[in-house]
Amino acid sequence: MSQLLSTHGLKAWYGDFQALFGIDFEIRPQEIVAIIGSNGAGKSTFLNTVMGVLAADPASVRFKDQPIGGCKTHRIVAGGIAMVPEGRRLFPSLSVEENLRMGAYTKRPGPWDLKKIYRLFPVLKEKRSVPGTAISGGQQQMVAIGRALMSNPELLICDEISLGLAPAVIKEIYAALAEVARNGLTAIIVEQDVYTAQNMSQRLYCFQEGRVSLSGNSSDLTHEQISHAYFGV
């Protein structure tokens, strides 16, 4: 299997408004791929379509060589894809530990459990009885990542996980993700920070107005190429 996940001419709509125009994308096992682009470029729409939130032709999204376009989100998660959504979306009525346990509802077998999450993010063990939204933004992001890992995914999708966080916290979170990746997890990261995206990934896609404006090996792409693809100038 050369690709873990791929999209082929992927299109998406919000009602009559077309948001994606034929996206071709692929990620191989144990690879980190970054997606960059300005606000409104189609990044979150792409992720939501992959996750089944938006309708798609079945053959336009393939996971482990099986068509999953338009599948129900809970089936996609049970099949091995987990997403850390923009804004974290924790349950305010649940504690940190209860939020983490919510990620394990699919009962997928795998290495991730509470013990491993607490080893990855020790501060969460200290805060495990605190309401999930009563901790700092960075700690909430750790909970969101931990919750996704608790589903034991083969592919982890992270949507703007650095948004609104202090640089030191961003560094800590991405160091944890790098450790997770070293243990064999495949990941898609959506980032507005180009420097972080390039440094964290093997390959990079730039989206502009619902289309892929640039793709290639992250280390090979120049500032000029990325700037042109990002801003269209």
Rank of each mutant, 00 (worst) to 15 (best):
K127N: 09
L204G: 03
G79H: 05
S219Y: 09
S218D: 01
E97T: 05
V233S: 12
G138R: 02
F25G: 11
Y105E: 00
F17C: 13
A176M: 06
L47Y: 01
C158N: 06
L94H: 01
P122M: 10
L177C: 10
S151Y: 06
V77I: 15
V77C: 11
P67L: 01
F231Q: 01
G146S: 06
I32T: 14
T133H: 10
Q66N: 06
H8P: 00
G138P: 03
Y105N: 01
S129D: 13
A148L: 04
G87T: 00
S136F: 07
S60L: 08
Y174K: 05
L120R: 08
G70M: 08
V61N: 04
M83G: 00
D16N: 11
G22L: 02
E154Y: 05
W112G: 01
K11Q: 11
R75L: 15
L120N: 01
I68W: 09
D65I: 07
L54G: 00
I189C: 13
I23N: 08
M200I: 15
Y14P: 07
C206R: 03
I161S: 12
E97Q: 15
R28P: 00
L90K: 09
G87R: 01
K115C: 09
A229Y: 05
Y230P: 02
L5R: 02
S213H: 01
Y105V: 05
G137K: 09
V96T: 10
F17P: 03
G69Q: 09
T73P: 09
G52E: 12
P111Y: 00
F46R: 04
R119W: 02
S215D: 09
C71Q: 12
Q139V: 03
K115Y: 04
E26D: 14
L100V: 06
S227T: 10
S95I: 04
S129C: 01
E31Q: 13
V194W: 06
Q141V: 07
E26S: 15
M83H: 08
K72P: 05
Q30E: 14
I76W: 10
A41Q: 05
G69V: 11
S60M: 11
H228F: 12
P111D: 03
D220G: 06
Y14F: 14
I145P: 00
D220R: 12
A134G: 03
R89I: 00
D65A: 13
A55Q: 13
V212D: 05
I157S: 04
D113Q: 12
V50W: 02
G9N: 14
Y195H: 14
G103D: 05
Q225D: 07
R203C: 02
L214H: 06
D24S: 09
I188Y: 00
I157A: 04
Y205E: 06
L114M: 10
G69C: 07
K11C: 15
R182G: 13
L4M: 14
Q30A: 11
L155W: 08
S219V: 12
G22M: 07
A197F: 10
D193T: 11
L221H: 07
V96C: 12
I76P: 12
R108Q: 07
N217M: 05
I27F: 03
G69A: 07
G87H: 03
A166L: 03
V233L: 10
I35Y: 07
E97W: 04
